[in-house]
Simulated scan of single mutants.
Amino acid sequence: MKALIESIVMSLVDHPESVVVTEQEEDAKVVYHLTVHESDVGKVIGKNGRIAKAIRTVVYAAKTNRDKRIYLDIM
């Protein structure tokens, strides 16, 4: 899942070397923290959060473990 998030986001930003995805697994959920260069935050979020919502939709649809809920946190 980390590779999917990285590949989507790296194609959107100007500084792909600054893209960092960390995974935090808990009992009932998995949280992915996405960090990008501060000049690229707007590109990842998009107008009214449309890009961020689209990224989240793809990630939620691609989840393999049906028991745990997935969250994507963009910083």
Results as ranks from 00 to 15, higher is better:
residue 50 R to P: 02
residue 37 H to G: 09
residue 25 E to M: 07
residue 56 R to L: 04
residue 6 E to K: 06
residue 49 G to P: 01
residue 49 G to A: 05
residue 41 V to R: 15
residue 52 A to D: 11
residue 18 S to H: 15
residue 49 G to I: 02
residue 37 H to M: 02
residue 48 N to G: 13
residue 64 T to Y: 13
residue 16 P to T: 08
residue 45 I to F: 00
residue 67 D to L: 01
residue 60 Y to L: 12
residue 38 E to K: 06
residue 28 A to E: 15
residue 14 D to S: 14
residue 50 R to I: 11
residue 25 E to L: 05
residue 55 I to G: 08
residue 51 I to K: 01
residue 59 V to K: 00
residue 5 I to P: 10
residue 15 H to T: 01
residue 11 S to W: 13
residue 40 D to V: 09
residue 63 K to N: 10
residue 64 T to H: 10
residue 48 N to L: 03
residue 45 I to M: 05
residue 65 N to I: 01
residue 53 K to F: 08
residue 34 L to D: 07
residue 10 M to D: 04
residue 55 I to T: 02
residue 10 M to T: 14
residue 10 M to K: 13
residue 32 Y to I: 13
residue 25 E to I: 09
residue 33 H to S: 15
residue 67 D to P: 11
residue 11 S to F: 06
residue 66 R to D: 15
residue 55 I to R: 12
residue 52 A to R: 12
residue 22 T to Q: 11
residue 60 Y to A: 11
residue 38 E to S: 09
residue 7 S to I: 07
residue 25 E to Y: 03
residue 38 E to I: 07
residue 41 V to A: 14
residue 23 E to M: 03
residue 10 M to N: 08
residue 50 R to E: 10
residue 7 S to Y: 12
residue 42 G to S: 04
residue 65 N to C: 00
residue 54 A to M: 12
residue 47 K to T: 00
residue 67 D to C: 10
residue 52 A to P: 13
residue 58 V to G: 00
residue 63 K to G: 08
residue 22 T to M: 04
residue 49 G to W: 12
residue 45 I to K: 06
residue 15 H to E: 14
residue 14 D to M: 01
residue 9 V to C: 00
residue 27 D to I: 09
residue 52 A to L: 15
residue 14 D to H: 13
residue 25 E to N: 14
residue 28 A to W: 03
residue 5 I to C: 02
residue 9 V to D: 09
residue 26 E to A: 12
residue 33 H to Y: 15
residue 18 S to L: 01
residue 57 T to H: 13
residue 51 I to G: 05
residue 37 H to V: 08
residue 43 K to L: 12
residue 4 L to E: 07
residue 9 V to H: 03
residue 59 V to R: 03
residue 45 I to Y: 00
residue 51 I to F: 00
residue 32 Y to L: 10
residue 54 A to P: 01
residue 9 V to Q: 06
residue 46 G to M: 09
residue 61 A to R: 06
residue 54 A to I: 10
residue 47 K to C: 04
residue 41 V to C: 09
residue 41 V to P: 01
residue 29 K to V: 12
residue 68 K to S: 08
residue 54 A to F: 03
residue 42 G to T: 10
residue 32 Y to V: 07
residue 31 V to E: 06
residue 40 D to F: 08
residue 67 D to N: 14
residue 10 M to W: 02
residue 34 L to K: 02
residue 39 S to R: 15
residue 55 I to D: 04
residue 58 V to H: 09
residue 28 A to D: 14
residue 61 A to Q: 13
residue 44 V to I: 08
residue 64 T to K: 14
residue 15 H to A: 07
residue 55 I to V: 14
